[in-house]
Design a protein around this nucleic acid. Structure first.
Length: 178
DNA sequence: ACGATGATGAAC
DNA sequence: TTCATCATCGTA
C-alpha cells in the first residue's frame, strides 16, 4: 500500500475538534527525517475548542503565537511550555475557528513532551502541513477503536481554566492502566 | 514534592 | 521593561 492511500488528508481535520480528537485514537503519527522513520500509534489526546475555551491558547485572542490555531485545519501547532517541552497539536475545524488536538501519548511515549523529544520536533514544524512534504504526518493503518475502549476525562494541567477545566476533552485508550 | 528553564501576554 | 504564568518531566 502506498503512503498516499493511507495518509490522512485535510478533510479529516475539517470537522469539530471533539470528533477529530476521538477519531485520532488508533491512528499513527509518522516522522521522516532522511532515511530515519519514527512512528507511534496515538493513544491519548486532548481537544482544545475555540475562543471560549479558557484552556485553549486562542482564548487570549489571535496573536503571533496563536495565529496558527486560527488558520486552516491539518496544520501543526507546536509551542514551548515550561521553558523546555515542545507540544504537538494538529489544527482542526474551519479556518477562522481556533481549535486543535494535543497529542499526549503515541507508541511508547507516554507524555506530550516525550513525543516531541523522541521525534525531534520543535518550533520549525509550527504552521507546517501534516503531509509527506514536511516529514511529519498521520496515517490510518486500519486500526479500529471500539467506543467501549475509549475513556474520556478532564484535561491535564489546565486547572486555571475554571469550568472548562472540568470538561471531558481528554480521550484515552483503555489499556495498561494501573 | 519540587526545580529546571524560556516564551508569552499583560501590566506598568 | 518587567513579571507571573505555564497543555511537563526527571529526580527525590
Amino acid at each position: 500500500m502506498r503512503i498516499t492511500d493511507r495518509y490522512i488528508q485535510r478533510e479529516f481535520f475539517e470537522r469539530p475538534v471533539l470528533e477529530v480528537a476521538e477519531d485520532l485514537l488508533g491512528k499513527t503519527v509518522v516522522c521522516k527525517k532522511g532515511r530515519t522513520i519514527i512512528e507511534g500509534m496515538i493513544m491519548e489526546v486532548e481537544a482544545y475548542d475555540g475562543p471560549e475555551d479558557k484552556a485553549c491558547h486562542a482564548s487570549k485572542g489571535c496573536t503571533q503565537r496563536t495565529k496558527v490555531l486560527f488558520g486552516p485545519a491539518g496544520h501543526w501547532y507546536v509551542y514551548l511550555v515550561y521553558g523546555m517541552h515542545w507540544m504537538l497539536n494538529i489544527v482542526t475545524g474551519n479556518e477562522g475557528y481556533p481549535a486543535a488536538v494535543l497529542i499526549r501519548e503515541a507508541g511508547e511515549w507516554n507524555g506530550p513532551g516525550k513525543i516531541t523529544k523522541a521525534f525531534g520536533i520543535d518550533k520549525h514544524f509550527n504552521g507546517k502541513t501534516a503531509t509527506e512534504e514536511t516529514g511529519l504526518w498521520i496515517e490510518d493503518r486500519g486500526v479500529i477503536i471500539p467506543k467501549y475502549s475509549i475513556e474520556r476525562t478532564a484535561r491535564i494541567g489546565v486547572d486555571y481554566a475554571g469550568e472548562w477545566a472540568k470538561k471531558p476533552y481528554r480521550f484515552c485508550l483503555l489499556q495498561n492502566k494501573k
